Amino acid sequence: MKAVLCKTYGLPETLVVEDVASPIATKGKVIISVKACGVNFPDTLIIQGKYQIKPPMPFSPGGEVSGTVKEVGEGVSHLKVGDNVFSLTGFGGFAEEVEADAQKTLLMPEGMDFITASSVMYTYGTSYHALKNRAELKVGETLLVLGAAGGVGLAAVELGKIMGAKVIAAASTDEKLELCKQYGASEVINYSTEDLRERIKEITGGKGVDVIYDPVGSKYTEPAFRSIAWKGRYLVIGFAAGDIPSLPLNLPLLKGASIVGVFWGAFAANEPKQSMQNFKELLGFIAEGNLKPHIHAQYTLEQASEALNEILNRKVMGKVVVSLQ
């Protein structure tokens, strides 16, 4: 089978496409013939050795896939050969076949296509866990989403709207903000041309925002936090801008505010029943037509480096997918 391989840590240009042996299903695992693989920011980190997970070399990036079950390992009873599934693999998805944990593999609902199925787990899983479990977002609260046109950001905009919040989307271009409006943002801020704090103050009448969803970090963190409401919750999702920011700790003290870490992968591992419940609810939203991933572009295996560079260069709105169909 063909696979995109990381043989040494580096930028996407260091990846190669080679023929490798097909995997064999071990106990509790399934082999999936991959039809599509979502591309996410952690994929850009894992190939540079900057992510929490460090697979043994050589490995394929690609943490979420959709496809058809080719082989079932010992002890797996809820899946069978021929089932259409989507799965959280962590890595290994940029390949024609991948071994996946059966407990992290779900049947695709009837009517769902492979591209959509490969675009659900990371973005919606992260954002729903953040807003539901960590922020406990309530109807009528105000949610500020930084990096709002990216994969997890746009998912947060959609989910915030569904959960009954007033959503303020902040992004770097008017084109990105127009997409955010289509996905449920009632107010937008272009933080490349507008003062973030002043616009938040203007939009909220000086009250501030109840929940801040921050996958960006860097220079936007402190001005956003200074705009948080009393008893607000600041969700630390990631650092797509590259720099991990520091905050004066008198700020949460003065606002009675919370800084809340969001590590969805650890949540899924430590609280699998709650994680699966979240996915059932998300699939319900999708079936009702309330959630639909925005697919920015599709790439072949041979173009996987291009897809990763699109994310690194912050050009992606919504999701990019490596398609093997």
Results as ranks from 00 to 15, higher is better:
46 I>R: 13
194 E>I: 06
278 N>E: 10
118 S>Q: 04
320 V>I: 12
164 G>D: 03
134 R>L: 00
260 V>N: 02
324 L>I: 14
66 S>R: 14
24 I>S: 09
149 A>R: 03
308 L>H: 07
261 G>W: 00
282 L>Q: 09
166 K>C: 12
102 A>C: 06
3 A>K: 03
291 L>H: 07
84 N>P: 09
13 E>G: 12
296 H>Y: 13
180 C>A: 06
16 V>D: 06
161 K>C: 07
131 L>N: 03
269 A>G: 00
220 Y>S: 01
246 S>F: 06
115 I>R: 09
66 S>N: 04
235 L>D: 07
125 G>M: 11
197 R>L: 13
209 V>I: 04
278 N>Y: 04
308 L>K: 08
8 T>V: 12
115 I>G: 10
171 A>C: 03
163 M>L: 15
263 F>P: 00
265 G>V: 02
223 P>R: 10
44 T>R: 06
236 V>K: 07
215 P>E: 09
217 G>N: 02
82 G>I: 12
1 M>V: 12
88 L>R: 14
160 G>F: 13
57 M>S: 05
234 Y>N: 06
115 I>E: 14
155 A>D: 06
208 G>M: 02
203 I>E: 11
235 L>V: 10
291 L>F: 08
307 A>Y: 03
278 N>M: 04
163 M>Y: 11
108 M>G: 08
199 R>N: 14
101 D>K: 12
202 E>T: 15
44 T>Y: 09
315 K>V: 09
125 G>H: 08
244 I>R: 12
137 L>A: 01
226 R>F: 00
113 D>L: 10
188 V>R: 11
89 T>K: 06
191 Y>N: 02
168 I>R: 12
28 G>F: 07
100 A>D: 08
23 P>H: 08
10 G>Y: 10
279 F>L: 14
123 T>R: 13
38 G>V: 03
192 S>D: 06
285 F>A: 06
247 L>H: 05
320 V>F: 01
217 G>V: 01
262 V>Q: 03
249 L>H: 01
148 A>F: 05
16 V>Q: 12
167 V>N: 09
185 A>W: 02
11 L>E: 14
112 M>F: 14
227 S>V: 02
194 E>M: 13
182 Q>I: 08
